[in-house]
């Protein structure tokens, strides 16, 4: 019978927390960068100008269809060779996950934008708005609300995918957990605690998101 003993893990709690902090920093960076990249890619993809929509389509497809681990290796090992730039684990990870999540966010943005009824564009144009004013004031705010659940889903996915950065020695939560497991010889306990940390964080964010959705619904702002 296995005897669970969490005490060595808890004694080194600070070690895990440092990794947790790095995971949060990376996730937040990739998330905010990814939203910007995603919106730009979506707008380019929807453009009538082929020289904009074509390359955007290629970027989106490449990053959606290749394994994130391979992308991470491209950026970490490949890019310094091609461009002769210095690459840190954090920079490689931030770039990879910004563009990768950007590609997914782009498809979510695009779906959200095209889901807005033609009448909304017409009503906005009928009071004299330009295309970009329509997009900014009328279409995007509604699209973002519709996209909210898929965005949340994707962000949770992103947080979990960032565990891959342990492979390029970025000291995220999983990397630290590995180290600790080897030091304490308590891998089961260490990874159970790590799973719990992800569980609590993501559940808490989901809870906030659900509350926000309910608030939209209450004011009538969310429904059409």
């Amino acid at each position: 019978m296995y005897e669970w003993d969490f005490s060595p893990v808890l004694a080194q709690g600070g070690f895990l927390l440092a990794g947790f902090r790095n995971t949060l920093i990376l996730t937040a960076t990739a998330l905010s960068g990814g939203l910007v990249v995603g919106l730009l890619l979506a707008l380019a993809r929807l453009s009538h100008r082929r020289w904009l929509s074509m390359p955007a389509g290629v970027v989106i497809e490449v990053f959606r269809t290749t394994p994130p681990l391979v992308q991470l290796f491209w950026f970490y090992f490949g890019l310094p060779i091609v461009l002769a730039v210095e690459m840190t684990p954090f920079l490689a990870a931030a770039l990879t996950f910004t563009i990768q999540s950007g590609a997914f966010f782009a498809e979510i943005f695009r779906a959200g934008i095209v889901s807005i009824e033609k009448g909304q564009w017409e009503a906005a144009k009928a009071i004299g708005m330009s295309h970009s004013q329509c997009m900014r004031r009328i279409v995007l705010p509604q699209a973002v609300k519709r996209m909210f659940p898929s965005m949340m889903e994707r962000s949770i996915e992103l947080m979990k995918t960032t565990t891959l950065v342990a492979t390029v020695s970025y000291a995220d939560l999983l990397f630290q957990a590995n180290e600790l497991a080897q030091k304490t010889f308590r891998p089961l306990e260490v990874f159970t605690v790590v799973a719990l940390m992800y569980f609590v964080t993501i559940s808490f964010v989901s809870f906030l998101a659900a509350r926000l959705e309910r608030r939209f619904a209450r004011t009538g702002e969310f429904t059409t």
Binding site: Q120, A123, P141, K145
Partner: peptide, 13 residues
């Protein structure tokens, strides 16, 4: 030239 549509097309947000 103001326009009023059959389906109102108010901005729901």
């Amino acid at each position: 030239v103001g326009m009023v549509f059959q389906h109102f097309n108010l901005f729901p947000h």
